[in-house]
């Protein structure tokens, strides 16, 4: 959701930061406010873009049973290969990280954004804002990140601190993997021997 229309208009008036004052080709037409509102639904980590609304974990549990449990399980534990949404704390630096909403997602408003836009799977973009708040409250309570009696609103949801909030870093391959930019690799007698350590046919998981 754009948050600086006023700033932009001020800049236009000042005539400095706009790419071009006039439309180069005059193609397209102005988007109406209702059209922008209909599609401009993304939610940022600070909660900007969240619509007004409220929902509680207990109502969310009932909604979850109706709309989500078929794939994610009654307790958000996941069914079959569908993703579990709970657990996994403290596993991210282990041999087998378990990445769930609770253990991995850095921002609670992103959960609202994803549920609102992409769920329920196969019937997306049909939930009312209050239903999304309720579902988010339930999923967060199933992760013990809010209490079972919690009601969330557009004001309170951004305040929920996710455990992996500081678990992400920007791409630093250019520095951390600088040694892979090495110009001239070895061409002859590069290693004394070669040993086969693993075979795909031992695993035997390839489609026939």
């Amino acid at each position: 959701m754009s948050r600086s229309r006023r700033v932009v208009l001020a800049v236009v008036a000042a005539g400095c930061a706009q790419s071009l004052a006039a439309q180069p080709f005059g193609l397209g037409r102005a988007a109406t406010p209702a059209e922008i509102a209909a599609w401009d639904v993304d939610v940022a980590p600070d909660g900007s873009g969240l619509p007004p609304g409220q929902g509680g974990a207990s109502r969310g549990e009932a909604l979850f049973a109706d709309f989500c449990a078929g794939c994610h399980g009654d307790f958000a534990e996941g069914v079959g290969r569908w993703p579990g949404l709970i657990g996994g704390y403290g596993t991210l630096d282990s041999r087998d990280p378990v990445k769930t909403v609770g253990s991995f997602w850095p921002y609670a408003p992103t959960l609202w954004d994803y549920v609102n836009r992409s769920m329920p799977y196969g019937n997306a973009q049909t939930l009312a804002p209050d239903d999304v708040y309720a579902l988010v409250a339930y999923i967060l309570s199933a992760n013990d990140l809010v209490g079972p009696d919690t009601h969330l609103t557009e004001k309170t949801l951004p305040n929920v601190v996710m455990p992996n909030r500081h678990g992400f870093a920007r791409d630093d391959r250019g520095k951390a993997e600088r040694h892979l930019w090495r110009a001239e690799p070895c061409m002859t007698n590069c290693k004394p021997e070669v040993e086969i350590r693993m075979r795909a046919t031992d695993l035997d998981v390839t489609p026939k």
Partner: peptide, 17 residues
Amino acid sequence: TSKYTDTLADGISRQFT
């Protein structure tokens, strides 16, 4: 965030790779 990020040995995930 939850997808298309690269989790390193220390559990920190590279983002926007």
